[in-house]
C-alpha cells in the first residue's frame, strides 16, 4: 500500500536578488521540478542529494508546511496542503538542528504537552512513553531540563516526542548530524526497531552514508529538484560506477600487483590500494590476492556518498 504518493510535484520560489544599489531582480527558482515517486507502508527510505537539491522543500511539502505549485501529493491518505492539522496526527517529524522540546522544562513536560496537543489516550501515551524511554535509555533524563541535555540526549528526546502519537510516517531531517559515534549508533538502532517492529514508514535525509547502509533498503537521490536515482544502495554504487577500495599490506614492498577484477590505484611501500566495483563482493578478490601474495593485513573502504553522487551527476550531464 502506498503511504506517500507524489505525482509530478513542482515547487518554485521567487528569489529577489540585489542588482546594483537599489534595483532588485526577481528570479524564479525551481526547488522541486516534477517529482514523482511512491513509498509503501513499512519502507525505510533514504532521501539524499547535495545541499539545495530540493530535499527540505520536499519534506516541507510532505508535512504540509509548504504547498506545491502544481502536482498531486498524498500522505497517509491526506492531502497535506489542505489538511495540515489532520496530517499532523499521522506523521512524526524530527529536525536534526531544531528541537521541538521545551528548553527550560524537564523532558517529561514536553511529552505531557504532546499528549494533550495530539490528544493521545492516557493508556496509549503511557505505553508508548515507557517503550521509548526503555529503548532510548531516557529514564534518568526525564526530570532534567532540556537545556542541560547533551546533543545526543536531546536527539533521543526529540525522537521519543515525535513517536508518542503513533505516527504512520516518520520524517527525519539529518537525525545524526553532530552526534558522537555512540549516540549515532543508539539512534540508528532505535530507528531500525521503529521501522521493523512497529512498521512505521521512515523517510530520512542525511549526509552520512552509514545511516543509509544500516537503515534503508531504498535510496532516492535528488538533484535540481528531480529524482536522479531510485533503488537499492548497491544499485546506487553501480549507477554511479562507484568503487570500493581494498587496502592490503603485503609482507614486503612490491611493484603494483596484478589481480583480475581490480586495479591498483596507489602504492606506498608494502601497502597497496586496489579499486574494485562497489557492487562486487570483496571475498573472491581477496582470495585471489591471498593465493598469489603473502598478506600481513587488509581492510575494505566504502566509497564516500558525495563521491558516488558526484560521479552520477557527471554521468547525467554527459547522458
Amino acid at each position: 500500500m502506498a503511504l506517500i504518493e507524489l505525482e509530478d510535484v513542482r515547487r518554485s520560489f521567487t528569489v529577489r536578488t540585489r542588482a546594483g544599489r537599489l534595483r532588485r531582480v526577481k528570479r524564479e527558482v525551481r526547488a522541486v521540478d516534477g517529482l514523482s515517486f511512491t513509498v509503501d507502508a513499512g519502507e525505510c527510505v533514504g532521501y539524499i542529494g547535495p545541499n539545495g537539491a530540493g530535499k527540505s522543500t520536499t519534506i516541507k511539502m510532505l508535512t504540509g508546511i509548504l504547498v506545491p505549485s502544481s502536482g498531486r501529493l498524498r500522505v497517509a491518505g491526506v492531502d497535506p496542503a489542505r489538511e495540515r492539522t489532520r496530517l499532523a496526527q499521522r506523521i512524526g517529524v524530527v529536525f536534526g538542528q531544531r528541537t521541538t522540546l521545551w528548553w527550560d522544562l524537564p523532558l517529561r513536560d514536553s511529552y505531557e504537552l504532546a499528549r494533550r496537543i495530539y490528544r493521545i489516550p492516557d493508556a496509549r501515551h503511557r505505553a508508548n512513553l515507557d517503550r521509548c524511554v526503555e529503548l532510548l535509555d531516557l529514564g534518568a533524563l526525564l526530570d532534567t531540563p532540556v537545556r542541560q541535555l547533551s546533543l545526543g540526549q536531546r536527539m533521543r528526546g526529540d525522537l521519543a516526542a515525535a513517536l508518542l502519537h503513533d505516527p504512520q510516517v516518520l520524517y527525519l531531517d539529518e537525525p545524526t548530524i553532530g552526534l558522537d559515534v555512540v549516540s549515532k549508533a543508539k539512534v540508528r538502532e532505535f530507528l531500525r526497531e521503529v521501522n521493523t517492529d512497529r512498521g512505521t514508514t521512515v523517510l530520512l535525509t542525511t549526509h552520512d552514508l552509514t545511516d543509509i547502509e544500516q537503515l534503508c533498503g531504498r535510496v532516492m537521490v535528488i538533484d535540481h529538484g528531480r529524482v536522479v536515482y531510485d533503488g537499492g544502495l548497491g544499485g546506487l554504487h553501480a549507477a554511479g560506477e562507484s568503487e570500493r577500495t581494498l587496502v592490503v599490506d603485503l609482507a614486503e614492498p612490491r611493484p603494483a600487483i596484478e589481480v583480475p577484477g581490480a586495479r591498483v590505484v596507489r602504492v606506498e611501500g608494502p601497502r597497496q590500494w586496489l579499486a574494485f566495483p562497489a557492487q562486487d563482493s570483496a571475498a573472491p578478490l581477496l582470495a585471489s590476492v591471498a593465493a598469489r601474495y603473502p598478506l600481513v593485513d587488509l581492510s575494505v573502504r566504502e566509497p564516500a556518498i558525495e563521491d558516488v553522487i558526484a560521479r552520477m551527476y557527471a554521468e547525467a550531464v554527459i547522458g
Binding site: 508535512t63 504540509g64 492539522t85 499532523a88 529536525f95 521541538t100 495530539y118
Partner: peptide, 13 residues
C-alpha cells in the same frame, strides 16, 4: 530562524 515550521507540524491552530 526557521522555528515557525515547528509550530506548523503540530496538530493545533
Amino acid at each position: 530562524a526557521g522555528t515557525l515550521d515547528i509550530v506548523l507540524i503540530r496538530p493545533a491552530p
